[in-house]
Design a protein around this nucleic acid. Structure first.
Length: 476
RNA sequence: CGGGGCGUAGCGCAGCCUGGUAGCGCAUCUGCUUUGGGAGCAGAGGGUCGGUGGUUCAAAUCCACUCGCCCCGACCA
């Protein structure tokens, strides 16, 4: 008997760690704060990469790769940026047995090194826009780490674009935000709120930061992706200039945007349950597992053959696996594949064989249906689609039910402890009020929605005039 | 960095208070019986008790130092 997963109701963060390690998505490394991404976790990341990469390419972006090491002086060139990142940088001081003349920072993000190159490559408006993305690892020396959600080293994609006009850059930033939003909903089955970060939550060096915010089952929000309009802050610092049509010189308008392996953590916390992972079919590395059940040797021969043939039949259309192991019982397999989050299980036992059918069991809710052998391929596709749809629907209902109105500050601070979730609240826009909420309730303004929130009201904190409401929540 | 917890077999733990030559469950290996929700029986292998130093006839156990990890907070994707 394998070790049980700590129930969510008992200890949510323990549950999370249990699911991640026991499903073999990841394991702790010998280095504090770092993790080993095991095949299941990495397969998920590859699925994320594959899908997003296609979306980036559809919108004209190209992949490139910039180096891991950044001269320390580069980071210093943009004032806000260095202030934001310097404390969490790992720095290499020695190489080849000698002390380096200039220390090398291990990238916490690549703005500086990439824009130093852009300065070299961009001369004319004809060189614009530059639409580059890179898939890379970055290192941030975090004080407290958590598997996938916040590790010292993590994998991500970072897009870096340069444009001739401010309007073009803004358009790009919103285009990417929409790609993230749709990816989260369509593939991960995680509905999100998209919006603008407040000044205090903005990326160091950006004009504006947009984000998508998801809600985890414990009621805490998780920032799942960010898209920054950098304005000309970096192009001024790195002298990224181009000559306009009229012959004048201007600094380029830039954007950067990214999502990370944190998305895998979001997947765990949005859909998992006390039996383990629960993956949306569109991202699941294994979508269908076939589990044969037999008693006699004679049955074993026939049923394992039927299972093998079924896998063969489904292989072209789905990611499928037949679990023909004889050394573990069917019950053991059920639990193992549920732990690993496989969305659909097809059982075939003596009774099924007799009836010419498979018993299909959804990971989501263990709902069982009989699938006639003749309709296997068609029904499997339908069931997987239903699961994907139901997961998103369930996520939407959860987000809806856990988004509340904050009517008064007293009521809000009291209710937050018991409810968690998002709160809609009016905010006057002052940093003081924002700071006070954070200190007193540990909730932060997660985002200012892009539309639908324009209505006059009174600030939740100071009662002052407010033009629009924002989303508040405690967050990861 | 502050608070809490933990380092004993591959994994999870007991033993420590009250020192006496290391144990349980799972996993592994062998054999037989099993298989529609984590199978049963019988047998076998596997440990410098995180490290260093001290106390003692004797240390997993007591003392000091040290290293590491996890959880909760302050910082962040």
């Amino acid at each position: 008997m394998a070790k049980a997963i700590t129930p969510r109701s008992e200890d949510y963060s323990r549950w999370y760690t249990d699911v991640v390690t026991q499903s073999r998505m990841a394991d702790y490394s010998p280095v504090k704060g770092c993790m080993v991404i095991r095949p299941l976790g990495y397969a998920l990341w590859e699925a994320v990469q594959k899908d997003l990469d296609a979306r980036f390419k559809e919108t004209g972006h190209e992949n490139a790769y910039f180096p891991l090491f950044i001269p320390e002086s580069y980071l210093r060139r943009e004032a806000q940026h260095v202030e934001g990142f310097a404390p969490e940088c790992a720095v290499v001081t020695h190489g080849g047995g000698k002390k380096l003349e200039e220390p090398l920072v291990i990238r916490p993000t690549s703005e500086t090194i990439i824009y130093a190159m852009y300065a070299k490559w961009i001369r004319s408006y004809r060189d614009l826009p530059v639409l580059i993305n890179q898939w890379a690892n970055v290192v941030r020396w975090e004080m407290r780490t958590r598997l996938f959600l916040r590790t010292t080293e993590f994998l991500w994609q970072e897009g870096h674009t340069a444009h001739a006009t401010e309007a073009e850059a803004e358009e790009e930033v919103l285009r990417i935000l929409e790609i993230y939003r749709r990816f989260a909903e369509e593939r991960m089955a995680i509905p999100v709120y998209a919006g603008l970060k407040t000044d205090s939550e903005r990326f160091a060096g950006a004009l504006r930061t947009y984000c998508i915010e998801a809600l985890m089952q414990d009621g805490k929000a998780l920032q799942a992706g960010t898209s920054h309009n950098l304005g000309q802050n970096f192009s001024r610092a790195f002298e990224v200039k181009f000559q306009t049509k009229s012959g004048a010189w201007d600094h380029v308008w830039q954007t950067s945007w990214g999502v990370s392996t944190r998305l895998i953590g979001a997947l765990v916390m949005a859909h998992g349950d006390d039996n383990g992972l629960n993956l949306p079919p569109l991202l699941a590395p294994v979508q269908v597992v076939i589990v044969p059940i037999w008693k006699s040797d004679e049955e074993k021969a026939r049923i394992s053959e039927a299972a093998r043939l079924a896998a063969e039949e489904l292989k072209g259309a789905f990611r499928v696996k037949a679990d023909l192991r004889d050394e573990v019982s069917p019950g053991w397999k059920f639990n193992e594949w549920e732990l690993k989050g496989v969305p659909l299980r097809l059982e075939i036992g003596p009774r099924d064989l007799q009836a010419g059918q498979f018993t299909a069991v959804r990971r989501l809710d263990r709902r069982k249906t009989a699938v006639p052998a003749g309709a296997l391929r068609a029904r499997t596709g339908e069931i997987l689609e239903e699961i994907q749809k139901d997961m998103l629907e369930r996520g939407r209902a959860f987000l809806r039910e856990n988004t509340r109105e904050a009517r008064s500050y007293a009521e809000f601070s009291k209710a937050l402890d018991s409810t968690g979730g998002f709160y809609r609240a009016h905010w006057c826009g002052s940093a003081e009020c924002e700071q006070r909420i954070k200190e007193e309730t540990k909730a932060t303004i997660r985002c200012i929605p892009l539309e639908g929130n324009r209505e006059p009201g009174a600030c939740l904190i100071c009662g002052g005039r407010s033009e629009r409401w924002v989303y508040l929540a405690r967050s990861y």
